[in-house]
Design a protein around this nucleic acid. Structure first.
Lengths: 214, 214, 214, 214
DNA sequence: CATGAATGAGGTTTCATTCAT
DNA sequence: GATGAATGAAACCTCATTCAT
């Protein structure tokens, strides 16, 4: 009835266990508040107190009631944002045939998504950017992120084998793409002037030149 | 002569005012310890207590005595690292004539520098990556960083005017380069397996293709 | 009809008032769970949350509903254990004629009882051992325990008057016996190696020598 | 420079490490306050807040500053009381030759000590009585207590070999003695009427009859 | 300069209780 | 009866800062 985290320590929110994809209202509300606060103040300044206040809760105890600690809440935030991003990006990417068009759709799509949900992307960027190696309970979680990247790396490899992309280290390329996108997100979060869609087009151009075979 | 920290509270170190480039031994020692701790634990976990411990100081009071708060210490850390980086990179870059060779020297040089001073680069990456907009006292500081970038952006522009580089938004390009390098630094800090010099060559290739005119 | 808990605050369970010996199923279930948890974790660590979990209840509210607070639950636990102990020990003691045989039966019986119901005895030992003077609502309760002891003290006195036991302070003797038994219980609870029946025989021998007249 | 507790977790009071037997003034003062509060309220109710208040400190942070957590403070309390008890009891016990006289001196001495330092004995009884198996950091500590007992058990054994004491399980005997003394302490702590010295003489008589060979 | 002590704020977590459904 | 949600207090701990010595 109680969850154990990766250290085996009994932590246990009193909340009845249930599938994480059917969020109760309160949980979803707390996650939403967390996203706002993280986007605004950053990962480390997003305390339970601030999140509770944003969520209209009278005490931080309520968050501990619904989540098995900070890490659990952060996991939920990332899960939520990944769900949103997947739903948004997948159709936009799959609408294209060529690998190069898909790469462009992916880059521009990410920044279009940011333009529509700036706080969601800011939050996930904050969380993943502050994730460290040693934190138990977040390890399996970082693996998830890694797996996401691996899928895209595989796409790059396929494009190379198909002769559409030239030779390069697909991991380095993928990381560079990801880093460039995240950098725009980070910057745009604090600079409303920045035209993220234009930046997206520029980045798409940049990486098209860096990858194409011709 | 007295700074205000991020809380707006008047704090004022009792340290005799003086030019920042004549570091006393203690200050330098604290900055060195801070670099180690930040590299190891990250920006937010690098508390005065941990830094004092690393520096062999028996109390955190010494740090407050020498620095006008956390921000001031962080500024000093960045200043120190920038000084080191400048001395290391400038000759390596200026050894080349063509803009493309200089760009390559810059990228590979950064990662060579990391290979030699991993903690210094890890620390500055941590600090700048966690810099937020609202913090007074860090604003002028962010401007400094921005100015550094601007210099390099100007180089890109010159290369474009010289016809050596093609058309692209030099700011976006420069940020993408910086983000890619920092990403390698971040990752390598927690993964000793990663071959940073190889990654440097890959990134140099990548951005050469993205910038060259031909 | 409503009790006051130790804070003096009016709390009042909504449970229909009734004689305590006709336990509803739920109450008995909660008491049983409490016994397990107290035996395992100790008096103070036995929170409503842990007890509810053990009882298969989804919320601690149920416990507050059935009991007028923690003290009330604890009272019920002790009452339950005393009932069990009485049923187990009385026949074993009354099977003997001589006072010395009865004393031995009492000591050994207690530890036999522990061997059969380790959690029950561990729980009552924990509760009574952590009972403090000041707690209103537990005062009458401590008196009950005291009365139990007084009955046994009276037996010692009778044995003395009958010339079977020698002169000694019967209260001190009775307390020493009780303390020795409880000590074995406490230790055995956390050390499964300990042979409680052997310890029971040793204690019976010890106190026989200490009490007999010859 | 920082201590590690038994779990290897970095806990670290900022206080400079030093030999525990030369207490600084504040540490000793906190220990004294802790003894008072534990004696009065019991182990679990003795919160840092109450101890700080008693010690005239404005915040609990000060206690965390001087001690590596609650366990560390409790360890120090026990160490202090053991030191006091040793100084008080050793000469009184060693003043006697025969084992039986020494046993009597030990029992009566413990209760004389209680009469003079009621809070000290109440505190140690509370702490040791609430010590559980699972608590890391207190394990080595329980071993210390066990070692203390073992020394006394060895004395019992010697007396048996010398023919002065009869046959019995010395561990069971020693525990019964200890339990009886502690019971008097516990009771007397909340009942000022109780004549502990008289109880001491009674217990000494009791265990003399239980141990002597004749 | 340096130290150790002190402070007060803020962090997460657990607790028993209450309440609407 | 039973549940899940909410509350506010209290717990321990860490932090950056200040200050007397």
């Amino acid at each position: 009835m109680q969850a154990k985290n990766s250290t085996g320590k009994q932590t246990g929110s009193r909340r009845p266990a249930g599938p994480s994809f059917t969020e109760t209202g309160r949980r979803a509300q707390i996650v939403a508040a967390a996203i706002e606060v993280i986007a605004e103040l950053g990962y480390h300044r997003a305390s339970f107190a601030k999140i509770a206040e944003r969520a209209g809760l009278s005490s931080t105890g309520m968050i501990s009631y619904h989540f098995d600690g900070r890490d659990d809440l952060m996991r939920e935030v990332v899960t939520e944002v990944l769900r949103l991003a997947e739903g948004y990006l997948r159709p936009r990417i799959e609408a294209h045939e060529s690998y190069s068009a898909r790469l462009r759709a992916s880059i521009e799509g990410n920044l279009d998504l940011f333009a529509e949900y700036p706080e969601h992307l800011a939050a996930i960027t904050e969380i993943l950017g502050n994730l460290r190696g040693g934190e138990p309970g977040m390890v399996a979680f970082r693996d998830t992120t890694e797996a996401h990247l691996a899928v895209q790396v595989e796409q790059l490899r396929k494009a190379q084998r198909a002769g559409e992309f030239r030779e390069f280290d697909p991991w380095v390329m993928m990381r560079a793409i990801r880093a460039a996108i995240d950098d725009v997100v980070r910057r745009a979060t604090h600079d409303p002037e920045l035209d993220v869609r234009a930046a997206g087009r520029e980045l798409a151009d940049l990486f098209e030149r860096a990858t194409r075979n011709a």
